[in-house]
């Protein structure tokens, strides 16, 4: 097993483009090392991106933030402007694992691990985030919802890697929220995750909305009908019940050690409704 630590994006792409059997990108390592240790996965090459400046910084890119794919959650939770702009994304990231995990785990890693239960992914989807992907043909930018294609499978090619995540800057009237259900209060994988982003006008009328669920289908789900349910309303109880119903209808979960189909579907509605209320309050709609 070979470990490489490129200093630039192009060096990294060059290593990835060589025909090695199993190459793994190492960001925080909180999934990769567990998979290696359990014997589940043994890469031939490990490419550590934490020496690449673009991957290890939170950069101001005019109208947007670029969050390096190697930036640990703990650093995100200390970033005042990011928290103000995207409280839901930051709380989703912060919910992953323990304080110790937060010292290492990254948004980019959570995305590329491609777990249906990843906490930050529904939140990034609801926030309309994108990721910057580097490859042999230069950079491309992809919507987050297009990255995870099946459990453990992503649309990132073997010779590509995610350099950073793009998130818009703060905007008045817009806010997001993420809630997940776990049996304990910490340290579990989401049984259900629900992310809601709303944009409201000064009167508290919803102008736009995006809702995404985690752990209820093979990949994260976008509730397509959410905008038409929410736009034009003040997210009153009746509207939220409709949203909850839509959330349940969009679920296609499995029975596994972490939850049953019935339970996941039921709780998806509850959390969607609760997260929508929080997002609405945060946007100033209370």
């Amino acid at each position: 097993m070979i470990y490489e630590r490129p200093n630039t994006v192009s060096e990294a792409v060059e290593i990835l483009s060589k025909s090695h059997e199993k190459k793994s990108i190492l960001a925080g390592g909180t999934d990769l090392l567990v998979q290696m240790r359990s014997g589940y996965y043994r890469p031939s090459h490990i490419v550590d991106i934490k020496n690449i400046p673009e991957a290890t910084q939170i950069r101001d890119d005019g109208d947007t933030f670029l969050v390096g794919a190697g930036v640990p959650g703990a650093q995100l939770s200390e970033h005042v402007e990011l928290i103000k702009a995207w409280p839901g994304v930051i709380e989703a990231m912060d919910l992953i694992g323990s304080t110790q995990i937060q010292g290492r785990a990254t948004l980019g890693g959570n995305l590329c691990n491609a777990s249906p239960a990843a906490d930050s992914v529904p939140a990034m989807i609801a926030a309309d985030a994108t990721c910057i992907i580097a490859g042999p043909n230069g950079y491309r930018e992809e919507k987050i919802e297009n990255v995870v294609t099946a459990p453990g499978v992503s649309s990132i090619a073997n010779n590509e890697f995610v350099v950073s995540i793009r998130l818009a800057k703060f905007k008045t009237g817009r806010a997001d929220a993420y809630l997940r259900f776990i049996p304990r209060t910490e340290m579990d994988i989401a049984v259900v995750g629900a992310a809601v982003c709303v944009l409201i006008d000064k009167k508290g009328i919803c102008l736009n909305a995006k809702v995404s669920l985690g752990a209820v289908a093979p990949t994260q789900v976008v509730i397509e009908t959410a905008p038409q349910i929410l736009i034009g309303t003040r997210l009153d109880e009746e509207t939220l019940d409709k949203l909850a119903k839509a959330a349940r209808a969009s679920c296609n979960p499995i029975d596994d050690k972490r939850g049953t189909i019935e339970y996941r579907t039921s709780v998806a509605g509850v959390l969607t409704k609760r997260a929508a209320k929080i997002a609405f309050d945060r946007a100033g709609g209370a």
């Binding site: 909180t30 090392l33 010292g103």
Partner: peptide, 26 residues
């Protein structure tokens, strides 16, 4: 060995981490 128990907690460059989830080469 999976970052779930915290018994190997160390501080790496000022950040609390599990030593079991850091490669020695890092």
């Amino acid at each position: 060995s999976s970052g779930d128990c915290g018994a190997c907690s160390i501080i790496l460059n000022g950040r609390l981490v599990c030593a079991c989830l850091v490669l020695a080469v890092e």
